[in-house]
Simulated scan of single mutants.
Amino acid sequence: MAQKSNHLFYVLECKDGSYYGGYTTDLDRRVAMHNTGKGAKYTRSRSPVRCIHHETFETKREAMQAEYRFKQLTRPAKERYLKQEEATE
């Protein structure tokens, strides 16, 4: 799915309905890590997770900034963001 040269910001939906935002260069590998309990501490007790959104950036810095901005949003704002991004795809 993702090429090694790409920098991705991704959003997972956890089994409890919560969202987790992260950064990776290999989306398939990273989602698999989350689902085997080797990903972020937050997702370990909330798996299985599924990727519901991802964006590709040219630089790691841009992707990490997108992740940071997403994590600062309230839950309703995250839902609006995801719905808005879904409409533009």
Rank of each mutant, 00 (worst) to 15 (best):
L82I: 06
E79T: 12
T36G: 09
G22T: 00
R50S: 13
S45N: 10
A63D: 04
K83T: 14
Y68F: 14
S47C: 11
R44A: 09
G22A: 02
D16F: 04
Q3C: 08
R44L: 07
R44I: 07
Q65L: 15
M1Y: 11
I52Y: 03
R75C: 12
L12R: 00
A77K: 15
A2N: 10
Q84N: 13
K83I: 07
T36V: 12
K78R: 15
C51M: 12
T59E: 13
T24G: 01
R50E: 13
T43F: 00
F57I: 09
R29Y: 11
S47G: 12
E89S: 11
E85P: 03
R80E: 14
I52W: 02
A63H: 05
Y10P: 00
E89Y: 06
Y68D: 14
E13C: 06
T74H: 11
K15D: 11
T74K: 14
Q65P: 05
G21I: 05
V31Y: 00
I52D: 03
R30K: 10
L12E: 01
G37S: 00
R61H: 15
Y68I: 10
Q84A: 14
D28C: 06
G21F: 10
G37P: 00
G39R: 02
I52K: 01
A66P: 07
G17I: 07
N35A: 01
C14G: 02
F9E: 08
H53R: 09
Q84E: 14
T24Q: 00
D16Y: 04
C51R: 05
F57K: 08
K60Y: 09
G17E: 08
N35T: 00
G22Y: 00
S45V: 07
R30Y: 03
D26A: 13
T43L: 01
R29H: 13
R80I: 13
H53M: 11
V31L: 07
K60L: 12
E67M: 05
Q84H: 12
E13W: 01
K15M: 09
M64G: 09
E62K: 15
T88F: 11
A66Q: 11
E85Y: 05
M1Q: 09
K4V: 11
G37E: 00
S45H: 08
Y10R: 00
S47D: 05
E86I: 04
Q3Y: 12
G39I: 02
R69L: 14
E86S: 13
M64L: 15
E79W: 06
G21M: 06
R50W: 07
E86W: 09
Q72A: 11
N35V: 01
Y23K: 02
M64K: 15
V49S: 03
K83P: 04
E13N: 05
L27Q: 05
Y23T: 03
A2K: 11
A63N: 04
M33S: 13
N6K: 12
Y81H: 14
H34D: 00
M1D: 08
K60H: 14
G22C: 02
E89M: 10
K41C: 06
T74V: 06
A63M: 06
V49H: 00
L8H: 12
N6E: 15
K71E: 11
P48A: 07
L82F: 05
R44E: 08
L8F: 12
E85D: 07
L73S: 05
I52P: 02
E62I: 12
E62N: 15
R75Y: 15
